[in-house]
Simulated assay, not measured.
Amino acid sequence: MPQRTSPKDASRIHRAEDLEDVVVDKRAQWRANGAKARRRQRRYKKKVITSLVQDIYENEAFD
């Protein structure tokens, strides 16, 4: 069973298409219905994207 997605996985994303491969919900089969599984996936994606944006702003040198 794969691990759940964490913000640390943002380092594995190099292109936008990689987001679908990186974000994994290991409990997707256990969700009550498909809508709840999709909702959870959106939350995981949002966490990873937020982490990416924070990393970009921390690594940039703003004047």
Results as ranks from 00 to 15, higher is better:
residue 12 R to V: 05
residue 36 K to W: 11
residue 11 S to C: 11
residue 46 K to I: 12
residue 27 R to Y: 13
residue 47 K to F: 07
residue 15 R to Y: 05
residue 39 R to Y: 07
residue 31 R to C: 03
residue 37 A to M: 02
residue 37 A to P: 01
residue 7 P to D: 01
residue 48 V to I: 02
residue 3 Q to Y: 05
residue 3 Q to N: 14
residue 23 V to M: 00
residue 54 Q to R: 08
residue 7 P to K: 00
residue 22 V to N: 02
residue 42 R to S: 07
residue 36 K to A: 07
residue 8 K to Q: 14
residue 14 H to W: 04
residue 49 I to M: 05
residue 30 W to V: 14
residue 47 K to E: 11
residue 62 F to L: 11
residue 29 Q to E: 11
residue 37 A to K: 03
residue 54 Q to F: 07
residue 58 E to A: 10
residue 11 S to A: 11
residue 63 D to M: 13
residue 51 S to K: 04
residue 26 K to A: 08
residue 59 N to R: 15
residue 47 K to P: 09
residue 45 K to N: 03
residue 2 P to R: 12
residue 22 V to Q: 01
residue 59 N to H: 15
residue 55 D to P: 05
residue 37 A to C: 04
residue 36 K to T: 15
residue 59 N to E: 12
residue 53 V to G: 04
residue 15 R to P: 10
residue 19 L to K: 02
residue 55 D to C: 07
residue 55 D to W: 11
residue 19 L to N: 01
residue 33 N to F: 02
residue 7 P to E: 02
residue 34 G to K: 06
residue 33 N to M: 01
residue 46 K to P: 10
residue 28 A to E: 10
residue 25 D to G: 01
residue 48 V to H: 02
residue 62 F to Q: 15
residue 34 G to F: 06
residue 60 E to K: 13
residue 17 E to P: 06
residue 15 R to Q: 10
residue 29 Q to F: 13
residue 25 D to T: 02
residue 5 T to W: 00
residue 8 K to C: 06
residue 26 K to C: 12
residue 54 Q to I: 06
residue 54 Q to P: 06
residue 39 R to W: 06
residue 41 Q to V: 04
residue 42 R to E: 12
residue 28 A to I: 08
residue 19 L to R: 04
residue 37 A to D: 06
residue 13 I to E: 00
residue 59 N to S: 09
residue 39 R to M: 08
residue 4 R to H: 12
residue 52 L to V: 02
residue 30 W to A: 12
residue 21 D to W: 06
residue 38 R to A: 03
residue 21 D to M: 07
residue 57 Y to F: 09
residue 44 Y to P: 07
residue 25 D to P: 02
residue 13 I to D: 00
residue 54 Q to G: 08
residue 17 E to G: 12
residue 60 E to Q: 14
residue 15 R to G: 08
residue 51 S to L: 04
residue 4 R to I: 13
residue 11 S to F: 11
residue 39 R to Q: 08
residue 51 S to P: 01
residue 49 I to C: 03
residue 49 I to G: 05
residue 32 A to F: 13
residue 24 V to M: 05
residue 31 R to N: 03
residue 20 E to A: 10
residue 52 L to P: 03
residue 31 R to T: 10
residue 11 S to D: 13
residue 34 G to Y: 03
residue 52 L to C: 04
residue 10 A to H: 03
residue 15 R to T: 11
residue 13 I to N: 03
residue 12 R to N: 05
residue 6 S to Y: 07
residue 58 E to L: 06
residue 22 V to M: 03
residue 58 E to G: 05
residue 7 P to V: 01
residue 12 R to S: 05
residue 49 I to N: 04
